[in-house]
């Protein structure tokens, strides 16, 4: 990647500097500053429509795929602005993986679902081994070890989501982005995923969007609270912004902002 001489604080792997994202003329989020720490789990919380998914997608340039979505500001990863013209978005995505809100396995076998990404990334090791270890980390191995050749679609919704998580883990990205990965899961699978996250934390940085306060509290080290307000200069719609960013403990015990307090105690959202 192209190194720039931007200075970022130590231990920060990804940082948003004055990022605003628009869909066409509609501004979805405005002026976000945020530093994501290496090796930590950060959760993004906030009311529906405040732009959490939008921000998350901007971190590995998935927004490129949405027509007329545009970004102002800089997103520094590893000292490089990933929105620099010279940056290859495909390479960004190989280093920053993503798990989506809806499970989206490939219409291929379970084995191929894992192997596809690894092969693209030029995996040279033992594929069987990688498939097994990824499925184990995704807490799916026991349920599917006997039917690796069946279609990914033959799994239940929750299992599919874990397959998608395993698929992302398999390419060993430096950062894993997860957009409400547990919204389709039962409590038991959710706990399994959360265990996996704790496990992964040793080697990876994780950024997760969640509507589940308990989950944010359980898994994350840092929490970013997004909110949306109507601006006078906007065209009527609400614009999202980062209301508060702090350690999870602080956010849930004594937040600085009144709105944060109201949101986590369930007064709105």
């Amino acid at each position: 990647m192209i190194k720039t001489n931007k200075k970022t604080p130590k231990n920060v792997i990804l940082s948003l500097e004055n990022v605003s994202i628009s869909y066409g003329t509609f501004e979805a989020v405005r002026n976000v500053f945020c530093n994501f720490k290496k090796g930590k789990i950060t959760s993004l919380i906030g009311p529906s429509g405040c732009g959490k998914s939008t921000v998350l997608r901007s971190l590995n340039r998935m927004n490129d795929l949405i027509p007329n979505c545009s970004l102002k500001g800089t997103v520094l990863f590893d000292g490089t602005n990933i929105y620099d013209k010279r940056v290859d978005p495909v390479e960004v995505r190989r280093r920053i993986g993503m798990v989506f809100q809806q499970p989206n396995p490939f219409p291929k076998s379970i084995y191929e679902n894992i192997a596809f990404g690894a092969r693209i990334n030029g995996f040279t090791g033992d594929m069987d081994e990688l498939v097994e270890s990824s499925l184990r980390k995704g807490a799916l191995w026991d349920e599917c070890k006997d039917k690796l050749n069946e279609s990914g679609y033959s799994l239940s919704g929750g299992q599919q989501q874990r397959l998608c998580i395993a698929r992302t883990i398999a390419i060993e990205p430096e950062i894993i982005l997860m957009d409400e990965p547990c919204s389709a899961l039962d409590p038991i699978s959710t706990l399994k995923i959360e265990e996996t996250m704790h496990e992964l934390k040793k080697n990876y940085t994780i950024i997760i969007v969640t509507h589940n306060m308990q989950q944010a509290l359980r898994v994350s080290d840092m929490t970013a609270f997004f909110n949306a307000v109507e601006y006078e200069d906007g065209d009527g719609g609400k614009v999202g912004y980062l209301a508060e960013f702090n350690s999870t403990k602080k956010i849930f015990s004594s937040p600085n902002e009144k709105t944060t307090q109201e949101y986590i105690s369930g007064k709105f959202g």
């Binding site: 495909v90 390479e91 990334n121 030029g122 040279t124 090791g125 060993e172």
Partner: peptide, 16 residues
């Protein structure tokens, strides 16, 4: 370890 196992992490000129 992964630097050795994933040799295409960087997209080479050809693929681009």
């Amino acid at each position: 370890e992964k630097l050795t196992l994933f040799k295409n992490r960087k997209r080479f000129g050809i693929e681009k």
